[in-house]
Simulated scan of single mutants.
Amino acid sequence: MISLDPSHMNKASATSHAVERLPDFIIGGAMKSATTTIHSLLSHHPEVFIPKGEVLYFDVDEIAARPDNFSKINNEWLFPEYDSPQMSDWYRSHFAEAKEHQLVGEDSPTYLASEKAPQRIRNTLPDVKLIFTLRDPVERAYSHYWHYVRTGRVFFNFDDTIRYSPGNIIQRGFYRVQLERYLELFDASQIKIIIFESFIRDPAQHLTSICDFLNINHEVLDFTESHFNPGKVPRWLSPQLMINRYLRRYAGRNQIERLPLQFKGVEETLWTKFLRRVHRTINPWSLQKPPKMASNTRRFLTRLYSKENRGLSELVGVDLSKHWNSIE
């Protein structure tokens, strides 16, 4: 059990909670690499308490990781402040229902790639256990792109997105430098690496190893509940990108509205809601594979990630060439 430093507590919260709980473990990403599946399976474990959904706290004010949290309202730029008592209380409130015998956890697909999160986690949770999932970065980037298509965050095809606005989609696959930041701050025994491609072949084996890492009983988990959060693809990409551009001011509204802020996301009008509904009728999404990535784009990304992740196999102690094409 981890107690919050009293200096971060206001008087009201100190008197209303006998014992403050914070995470014993964090599922920290990478994005589109089965973090949701691991979260879902562990949430059914009687020895574990993990809030529904992603908390996304330690990088809440990092614009590169959480651009949706920055909003311009009435000609004023507003954003959440990580070090405010309000944000600290909000984070702590997610774990208030944990029972005394339960391990407490949280899940964020963005902490691994964040530049701010490692030190903040170390300052707040020095003994925390960290679970990171790594996926072939080329496949991860393409899956990430289609996630952004669905959520209205990209306005170009994949090649043009890489060319004009690579940002999170490309950089989140630079695993070596990301893991090095954590290894500078945490003992290697506190970090568990899961390779996505191996995980989807045998989730039971890997969930057992995660339970062993957390020192909880693996026999109570029902591995038949495994799912891998498949994403839907629009029938036609170009119309979807057009509607994304038109409705871009509303993208990420759900993210900002979940934070304890005085301001909220831009409210959709009846017209935009109607337009979105009509578009979804004409251009429906379905559970199907996206079109193949252009071969020259795949070659470029393979070269890029092979260079950026050189030495990653030695760092994680796994021969990643057996799982990925984009590694030397």
Results as ranks from 00 to 15, higher is better:
D5L: 01
D5E: 12
P6N: 08
N10Q: 10
H17I: 12
H17L: 11
F25K: 03
I26V: 13
A34I: 01
T36R: 11
K52P: 06
E54R: 03
L56N: 11
F58T: 01
I63P: 03
D68N: 08
E76K: 14
Y82S: 08
Q86A: 10
L103K: 10
G105F: 05
E106N: 09
Y111S: 02
I121Y: 04
R122W: 09
L125P: 01
L125N: 06
P126Y: 05
P126D: 14
D136Q: 10
E139S: 12
Y142K: 05
H144P: 04
H144W: 12
V149E: 04
F158A: 05
T161I: 07
I162A: 04
Q171G: 11
R172A: 13
R172K: 10
Q178A: 06
E180F: 02
S189N: 15
I195A: 02
F196I: 08
E197G: 07
S198G: 15
F199P: 02
D202F: 00
D202V: 05
Q205D: 01
H206W: 14
S209E: 15
D222M: 06
F223P: 00
N229Y: 04
P230A: 11
K232N: 08
P239E: 11
Q240L: 09
N244D: 09
R249D: 14
R253C: 00
Q255E: 14
E267I: 06
T269R: 01
W271C: 00
T272M: 05
R276L: 02
R280F: 00
P284G: 07
N296T: 14
R298I: 09
K307R: 14
K307H: 14
L315H: 11
D319M: 06
